[in-house]
């Protein structure tokens, strides 16, 4: 029983960066943009967030810079795909190559200037990133460790998911956003400023991805800077959007399920089932591939991808 609880809470921790990435990509796709740059935006957020924390020791600055860096990546993407109508696939891929490269490059640049040849977050900041202890709640049996013993990021990600769920599906701006993603020409004719909506939501999504990167760099890796710190989580996040059926609230579940796959190896006793480590490391990717196949077999009209994802919009197209 306690193993199960540990597995679940471990899954939540492992799933949190995925959740951020998935939420960011959902916002992007709702605006009609398949952004394959999630990995890159997460890497940029990871680097900026970590370095801000490393230099200032402030959690708030970390979050701010992570968000801004992710949004900066998205800004490049938006400039190219919205204003200059470049191919979304290629632009997104390039953003990933660029973002991951830049993040590693700056990490290396910072490393050189340290004495110990390691970058570690200040102890005070590290403590703030530890699991919260909520008096009276965290000590509860079962529920305490299942619900009330996570770090700030976890609660932040859940809050963002719920807010996005309300924003996209129940607010006036969200309706306009969905219209832009489904049919920009219709949105335009209705007086919606298509370009502005696209930019704002691409940047918002990019910022959220950046937060996910920061989590990966600052919490998942134990407060020590590692090269390739996002390590493919961004790609899983893109695929998770399909699993979540473009619904931010469903994304919570999806991210934790995939979090579970990535930590499963610590919970399956070798005596019961002995599989090579490489298999467990590949497991999230194998499952993602399977999800892609299964969801394409069961394609349904409702909840499907926004209709104009991947297409540029030019008002005077004739």
């Amino acid at each position: 029983m306690s193993t199960l609880i540990r597995l679940i809470s471990h899954s939540v921790l492992a799933g949190t960066p995925l959740l951020f990435g998935t939420l960011g990509e959902i916002v992007n796709e709702k605006a009609g943009h398949l952004n394959l740059g999630v990995e890159g935006m997460m890497a940029m957020g990871a680097c900026a967030g970590f370095m801000a924390g490393y230099l200032s020791g402030s959690l708030l600055l970390s979050l701010l810079f992570a968000f801004l860096a992710g949004a900066l990546g998205a800004l490049i993407y938006a400039l190219l795909t919205v204003t200059l109508m470049a191919d979304q696939n290629v632009t997104g891929l390039t953003l990933t190559i660029f973002g991951v490269g830049l993040s590693n490059f700056i990490g290396q640049y910072m490393l050189v200037n340290t004495a110990t040849n390691t970058l570690k977050l200040p102890e005070a900041l590290n403590n703030r990133l530890k699991a919260l202890s909520i008096p009276g709640l965290s000590q509860l049996p079962v529920a305490g460790s299942l619900l009330f013993s996570y770090d700030l990021f976890v609660y932040l990600s859940i809050a963002i998911a719920l807010l996005l769920g309300w924003y996209i599906n129940h607010s006036h701006s969200g309706r306009n956003l969905r219209a832009v993603g489904e049919n920009p020409a219709a949105a335009d004719a209705a007086g919606i400023h298509v370009t502005r909506v696209k930019y704002l939501n691409l940047l918002l999504g990019g910022g959220i991805c950046g937060l996910g990167g920061a989590y990966a760099a600052m919490v998942s890796n134990g407060g020590v800077w590692l090269s390739d710190t996002v390590g493919g989580r961004g790609w899983i996040a893109v695929a998770l959007v399909i699993f979540a059926a473009w619904n931010p609230v469903r994304a919570i579940l999806g991210a934790y399920v995939f979090g579970a796959f990535s930590v499963l190896k610590y919970y399956v006793p070798k005596s019961v089932l002995s599989l090579p480590n490489a298999f467990y490391d590949a497991l999230p990717f194998i499952v993602t591939a399977l999800v892609l196949v299964i969801s394409s077999i069961l394609q349904k009209r409702k909840n499907a991808q926004p209709a104009s994802v991947g297409l540029s919009y030019y008002r005077e197209e004739r």
Partner: peptide, 24 residues
């Protein structure tokens, strides 16, 4: 108000949602 030959409607939305699209 313009009614285009190729309707500018969002297929995935209801009539009400379509009517309400636009600046608030």
């Amino acid at each position: 108000g313009m009614i285009h030959q190729h309707f500018k409607l969002v297929e995935a939305m209801t009539a009400l949602e379509n009517i309400l699209l636009g600046p608030r």
